[in-house]
Design a protein around this nucleic acid. Sequence first.
DNA 1: AAAACTGCGGCAG
DNA 2: CTGCCGCAGTTTT
Length: 189
Amino acid sequence: MAKNIFKYAIFLTSWGWAGFVADQQGLRFLFLPEQRKEDVVLELRKNLNNHNISNINNIGEESRDYRDYRDLIQKIKDYFVGKKVDFSDCQLNLDKFTNFQKKILQVVRKIPYGETRSYKWVAQTAGYPRAYRAVGNVMKNNPIPLIIPCHRVIKNNGMLGGFSGPAGIALKKKMIDLEFISKSKPKVI
DNA sequence: AAAACTGCGGCAG
DNA sequence: CTGCCGCAGTTTT
């Protein structure tokens, strides 16, 4: 059987250092911007340890493999300067998840840029009408934030709900605000 | 197998 | 508004 090769990138966005990990099936982890690069490295290492991943190669901007992911890196950078970016073509690896989790993540992924939905809406749409609390559990452990836009999932009463990324709820609000402002801007080519 | 744990919701005060 | 249960899937005992 073929050995699974993991690749990672860490790069600077206008909101700080971000990164991701991918294997042949697609994206596995994404790390939202932090001020210190070391914190992204730490977060990355932690995730690799938790999942017993050892063979991993840098695809940072010096690497010749960089071009494989340059589009994604550019899109992520674009997102944080307020461009309306579409990540729907981005290949994800969700193999590690239960059917319930996969279903929830797929529903969340389709929430459009600049819009929000409630945990309850997600549960209903996924076909688990009363599992809205379990949806929160899935969001908490979402390894691919932004691409799976868990920041667009808020409470039914309009409050923000929680967020596990760096800076917690403040970052969630900042991303929602960014999208709200940017979605109506005239599209620049 | 049971209990504990949530990024929730709805309702009672 | 706050507090308190019920809720369902996952994780931990």
